[in-house]
């Protein structure tokens, strides 16, 4: 109904994604990259839930649930990797 407001919301989300990707590329340490990846995943979850409203389809909500579970596991696994790797070195 109000098409241009959809474009406003989508472009704000896209700007947020661009900033996290810049931090992901530049991040001086590995932990900065993991933080950027976590924020990126959260923005993508919000985007998928918004797409459910735009395309008027219930399937996107299931995709968002599965993506949220996978993003949480991904964060935990990267944090464990970071911890274990540096304990061996020091």
């Amino acid at each position: 109904m109000i098409d241009w407001l959809d474009f406003v919301v989508l472009s704000l989300l896209a700007l947020g994604v661009i900033f996290t990707v810049i931090r992901f590329v530049l991040g001086p340490k590995l932990s900065d990259r993991v933080v950027a990846l976590d924020t990126f995943n959260m923005i993508i979850i919000g985007l998928i839930v918004f797409l459910a409203l735009v395309f008027d389809s219930k399937l996107y909500l299931d995709i968002a649930i599965v993506y949220a579970v996978l993003a949480f596991l991904e964060t935990i696994v990267f944090a464990r990797y970071l911890e274990g790797k540096n304990n061996d070195n020091s």
């Binding site: 406003v8 919301v9 947020g16 994604v17 959260m42």
Partner: peptide, 21 residues
């Protein structure tokens, strides 16, 4: 009302990205 909440949410996502940057 729905679009007001959606735009506020998108602004906070943008703020999160900017904060990480």
């Amino acid at each position: 009302l729905s679009y007001i909440f959606l735009i506020i949410g998108a602004l906070f996502f943008l703020l999160g990205g900017l904060g990480v940057f």
